[in-house]
Design a protein around this nucleic acid. Structure first.
Length: 214
DNA sequence: ATCCCGAGGG
DNA sequence: CCCTCTGGAT
């Protein structure tokens, strides 16, 4: 775990991310709030690419919780069998869809508490929906962000909640909304878990971790 | 701390 | 073969 970087360095890091990619987007395909919620719930311990492959056909048939109930758990499983943890995910998506229909008029709620009360929706998934759909500066800390935050010193922490707090505390406000996607894309393509591409890194000169990977 | 779990990469 | 992938519930 690297030492906490100072404010000016962090500001410079995000200024570079912004310059390189002013409007960073996620890579999880979806057509509305409901399909976003489902896609994020399916993405646990899975790659976006794998989730997109499965939802491509699924979201052609199903884009609402009511339609998901009509589809049924068995046929949902057929769609998502190629994704890890598919039994739990299918059960959760069905249960969550039922709750949306029965308690939320088929809409996706905009409060963290309501989102997190849904089966299969924890802090991370709720934060992604709050950030991507409701444009709230929520910091969903996934495996990539946890790694990048700790390697770089942008927001070191022993667990994901600590890193979330550190991002809230140390990332300048104007960068908070897009911080999630900048960090995750950086983690996915540059600051990779296995073979980090430090030679191609935009913030190489501001990071201590690179020294170990030249 | 452990289980759930398949695909893709090296 | 081993590691990793936008975690959550128990």
């Amino acid at each position: 775990m690297a030492a906490q970087l100072d404010y000016l360095t962090i500001h410079e890091i995000f200024s570079r991310f912004h310059a390189a990619e002013p409007e960073p987007k996620g890579e999880l395909n979806h057509v509305n709030a409901y399909t976003l919620l489902v896609a994020v719930a399916l993405s646990a311990q899975a790659t976006d690419k794998g989730v997109n492959k499965a939802t491509e056909a699924l979201f052609r048939e199903v884009t609402t919780p009511a339609a998901m109930l009509d589809l049924g758990e068995e046929r949902l499983i057929e769609h998502i069998r190629t994704i890890g943890l598919y039994r739990n995910k299918a059960k959760n998506v069905m249960a969550l869809s039922r709750i949306l229909v029965e308690q939320y008029g088929g809409e996706v709620p905009s409060s963290r508490a309501a989102l997190q009360s849904l089966p299969g929706v924890g802090r991370k998934t709720a934060n992604v929906v709050l950030n991507m759909w409701w444009r709230f500066p929520a910091q969903a800390v996934d495996t990539h962000i946890f790694r990048v935050a700790n390697r770089t010193g942008i927001a070191p922490g022993r667990d994901v909640v600590a890193v979330e707090r550190a991002i809230e505390d140390h990332v300048p406000a104007p960068f908070q909304l897009h911080a999630h996607h900048w960090l995750i894309l950086h983690g996915r393509y540059v600051c990779r878990a296995r073979a980090p591409a430090c030679r191609l890194c935009l913030i190489r000169d501001l990071c201590e971790f690179e020294e170990k990977n030249l």
